[in-house]
Design a protein around this nucleic acid. Structure first.
Lengths: 356, 356
DNA sequence: CTGAAAGCGCTTACAG
DNA sequence: CTGAAAGCGCTTACAG
C-alpha cells in the first residue's frame, strides 16, 4: 500500500553545470539567464536558453517544481471500458500512456471499476480511503450523479476524456469539435459538397464531433441539407458496416454522397468493409475519413485518413491538473483543457470524383 | 530595453525549514514527503502536505520550477480595445491583472496595437524584433489571416480571450458555453420557460454563450421556440437599451417572456434602463441576467445577477501556456484552456412571476 | 555584461 | 518510519 516504486529516474541528470559547459559560459551566467537576476546579452541569453531546452534541463526543472503530492492515484473506469469484448482501443491506449507516466513519476495507480449506476460515488470514496489515494482520475465518466457527489465532496478529482457540463471539476479531452471541423474542412477543400457524418448516440465527447462537422459546413457557407447524418447503433466496426449497408439500401446507393466522415476509426473500418463488399471503390467513388488515430486504421486497405488524438498526452495532462489542484488550492477556477488533434491524410480520401 | 524590473519578490520566502518547524518534524522528513524518497506514515505525510500548502510553500516551489524564459512579452491588442470611448471593462480588467502578474514575475510587458486588417502579422514580428520579446500574447484577436501567419511562423504565441478554430495556437478563454448554460439552467430552475437571449454579432467567444443558452433548453427538454433571440447592434449599454426598446415595441410588450439573459453585463445594464423607463419591474415582472461580472453590475439598481468570468486568472494562465510552449518544445499538442465561470445571483433575478 | 568564489537550501546516504 | 549530518546544486553578492 505504501510501498515506494523506485521512480525510474533514468533521466541523465542534466544540471546547470552541463548547460554551462555546452553553452561555453560560466555556471553563474546560466543561473542568471534562468532567473533573470542579471542583465545578460541577448546573444548569450539566446544560446543558453537554446542549450538548456535541447539538453532537457528546462523540462527537468519544470518537473522538479512539480512536488510529489501525488503518491497514489485512483483511476475510476466504467466496467464497459474494462470489458475484453469489443476492445476499446482508444481507452486502452490512453490507459497505457497514463500507466507509463505514473510509473515514470513513481506514482501508484490504483484501478477502481465503477458502475455508472448509483453507488459509484461511494465506491470511489471507499477506494480512496482503503488505498490512501491523494486523488482520483475518472476515465470516460460523465454520469451527472457521480459528478454531483464528487463536486460537493473534498475529493480531488479530474475527468479524463469526459466533460463536466457545469465545470465544477477539471477535465481533459481531445479537441473533438475543432478536430472534426478540421477533417470536414479538408474534405470540403477537396471539392466534396455532400458529406455523410456517421456517428452514434454516445457521450458528450462524441457529440462535440458532430458539432465540429456542422461548423465546417456553416463556415464554408455550404447548404446545411448536404450535411447528412447516419446513426449507427454502437461504435464497433460491425455497427459501422451495418449502418452503412442499411443507409445504402434505403437510399438506393450513394445518393450523391462523395465522402463519409465517421466519428470513430472503428466505424470507418466497418464502412470500408461495407463498401468493399459492394464493390464501391475508396477513394475512387467515395472518400472515408475516421477519427481517433488507432493503429488498425493505419493498416487497413486502403489505409484510413483520420484525425489523430494525442492519446499519449491526455493521461499525463490529467495527472498535472490533479497535482495543480492539490497544490493550487480549491478555490482556483476549474480548468477545462482540450489538447489539439492532428489531421492525418492517408489513402482512404481523395478529391471529389464528380468535379467539374 | 533590457532593463531588469526588480521582480517584486515580496513573498516571505517560505522554505522547507519553515514547513518542518510548523509541522514539528525534521527538515529531511519534509523533503522525503515532497519527493517521495522515503516511506512516510500517512499521518505525518498528511500533516506536512497540509502545512506546506497552507504556508504557500507548494505554490512557491511550483513557481520556482517555472524558469524565467519569459523576460519580455508582447501583448497585441486591436485598436478597438485601446480606444477610450465606450470602455471595455472586461478587457481592461483582464489587462490590469495580466500587468500585475508580469510585474510580480519581473516580466516586461510591451503593448503592440495591431490592426485587424492585413499587415498585423508584420507589425507583430517587427515589434518582437525591436523589443527582443520572447513571445506574444494576443488579446481579443482571432482574425484568420493573423493566426495563419503566426501558426506558420516560429513565434511563440498564445491567444487570450479568443480561439483558434484550427487549434494551431494555444488559447485561454473563459468557459463561455458552460457559463451561459449554467445561467440559463438557473433561470429554468426558477420556473422561467420563455427566455430571451440578448446578444450581438460578436466574435466566437460571444457565440459560445448562445450555444450554452441553447444547451440548457435542450437539456431541460424545453421547447426550442421559447428560446428567443434578440440581436443588439453592439455590446454597449445603449445598444442593449435600444434593442430591448425595439423588441418591446415590435412584440407589444413582454409577450410572455419572463427572463432576459444577456451575453454581456453591459447589455444587461442597458436592458435594466429600458425596463425602468417603461415602469416594468425587475425582478417582479421580469428577471435580467448578465455575463462577465464587471463592477457596474454590482452597483446597478437592482444589482445585476451575472456569470463571473475569472478575469484575474485568464492573463496569468496565458502567460503560463506561453512559458510552457517555450519550455516544452514546439511539437507538444496545442492546448485550449477554458477557465470555469461562477454564477452570482443578486437582485435582478427571481422566480418566474406567472407560476402555477 | 561576465565569471570566480562564498553561501544557502534542499537532498541523500545512513544510523537508530 | 524518523532525524542528525554530510554533500551537492544552484544562487548571489562582488570584482572586473
Amino acid at each position: 500500500m505504501s510501498r515506494i516504486v523506485p521512480a525510474g529516474d533514468r533521466a541523465p541528470k542534466v544540471g546547470i553545470k552541463d548547460v554551462s559547459r555546452e553553452a561555453g559560459v560560466a555556471i553563474s551566467t546560466v543561473s542568471h539567464v534562468l532567473n533573470g537576476t542579471a542583465p545578460i546579452s541577448p546573444a548569450v541569453r539566446g544560446r543558453v536558453l537554446e542549450v538548456a531546452g535541447r539538453l532537457g534541463y528546462l523540462a527537468r526543472r519544470q518537473a522538479m517544481g512539480t512536488i510529489k503530492t501525488l503518491q497514489t492515484v485512483l483511476i475510476a473506469l466504467p466496467p464497459e471500458t474494462l470489458a475484453q469484448t469489443s476492445i476499446n482501443m482508444v481507452s486502452w491506449t490512453m490507459l497505457r500512456a497514463l500507466g507509463a507516466a505514473c510509473e515514470q513519476r513513481g506514482i501508484k495507480l490504483e484501478p477502481c471499476p465503477v458502475d455508472s449506476a448509483a453507488g459509484a460515488y461511494r465506491t470511489i470514496v471507499d477506494a480512496i480511503g482503503s488505498a490512501g489515494a491523494d486523488g482520483v482520475l475518472l476515465l470516460n465518466v460523465d454520469e451527472p450523479g457521480v459528478l454531483d457527489a464528487l463536486a460537493q465532496s473534498e475529493v480531488a478529482a479530474v475527468l479524463l476524456n469526459a466533460e463536466d457540463s457545469q465545470m465544477r471539476l477539471d477535465s481533459v479531452t481531445p479537441g473533438n469539435r475543432f478536430g472534426a471541423c478540421l477533417a470536414a474542412n479538408w474534405l470540403i477543400g477537396q471539392g466534396h459538397r455532400r458529406i455523410l457524418h456517421m456517428t452514434w448516440h454516445g457521450r458528450t465527447t462524441i457529440r462535440r464531433r458532430s458539432e465540429g462537422f456542422l461548423d465546417a459546413f456553416a463556415e464554408s457557407g455550404l447548404k446545411r441539407e448536404n450535411a447528412l447524418f447516419c446513426h449507427a447503433t454502437g461504435w464497433e466496426p460491425e455497427s459501422g458496416a451495418l449502418a452503412m449497408d442499411n443507409w445504402l439500401d434505403e437510399h438506393g446507393g450513394l445518393d450523391g454522397v462523395t465522402a463519409v466522415f465517421c466519428a470513430a476509426d472503428n466505424l470507418a473500418l466497418g464502412v470500408l468493409q461495407a463498401f468493399a463488399a459492394r464493390g464501391i471503390s475508396v477513394p475512387g467513388d467515395i472518400s472515408v475519413m475516421g477519427f481517433d488515430g488507432i493503429a488498425p486504421g493505419q493498416f487497413a486497405a486502403p489505409s484510413l485518413s483520420t484525425v489523430n488524438i494525442p492519446l499519449d498526452q491526455l493521461g499525463p495532462a490529467a495527472l498535472n491538473l490533479l497535482a495543480q489542484r492539490l497544490t493550487g488550492g480549491r478555490d482556483a477556477p476549474r480548468q477545462k483543457l482540450e489538447l489539439g488533434c492532428e489531421l492525418v491524410i492517408r489513402n482512404s480520401t481523395g478529391q471529389c470524383p464528380n468535379q467539374g
